[in-house]
Amino acid sequence: MIFLHKLLNFYYREYKLNLSGFQDILTNITFFFISIFIFIFSIGPEKETYSFLGVGILWTLLLLSSTLSLRKFYQDDFENGNLTLLHLNGFSFELIAILKTFSHFIFVQIPFLLSIPLASILLNVGNEKLYRLTISFLLGALILSSLGSISSSMNLLNKRNYLLGSVIVMIFSIPIIIFSVGIININENFNSLVGILSGILLITFAVNPWASGACLKIAIQNN
């Protein structure tokens, strides 16, 4: 019971923090839409081009703009000492990693999910593809949150090279891009590709707590 109470308090705190920092998420979504405009300006406004390029562009831009918010994943909590306090309150580092991953998914990736229908109108993605895009983004966003947890916990003590975190996420997100875009563009085999994507999700879920927990421990011990 006490544990549940702690969990609820944790998420209430995350909600408050994300609400006060909502302009960051809005800026992220604005970045996403501006980069769609840039793509249209650079490739040209023909609708036929986007019927087969649109999904790939959309996924690439979602990946790029969700890596922008990774700096805030653990950094604020680490610098004002909240991570240490959480650990002293009986949360193991692995549990903190799991909770923060879900909080990142709920408060950062879900707003992106809400902006996908508008973006798909801009890029001329049909209704059938939009349904598949939503499913693939729901699965892929959870994987991206887990990878973001790993890479941002690795970079807590990195004072010189901020971009390293984004590079680490992007190198591991290659299989996600392959299978998510594959889901949308292939007509048969839909269920088997969803199965592969959920398999990748389970693997990253299994690796994420141990890897990020170890990195958080190293960062707190050496700070």
């Binding site: 003590l157 004072k159 010189r160 090279n161 390293l164 190293i218 960062a219 050496n222």
Partner: peptide, 11 residues
């Protein structure tokens, strides 16, 4: 890059 961009060797 990881090996050259952190200051602390133990980290």
């Amino acid at each position: 890059f990881i090996n050259i961009s952190f200051e602390n060797v133990r980290v």
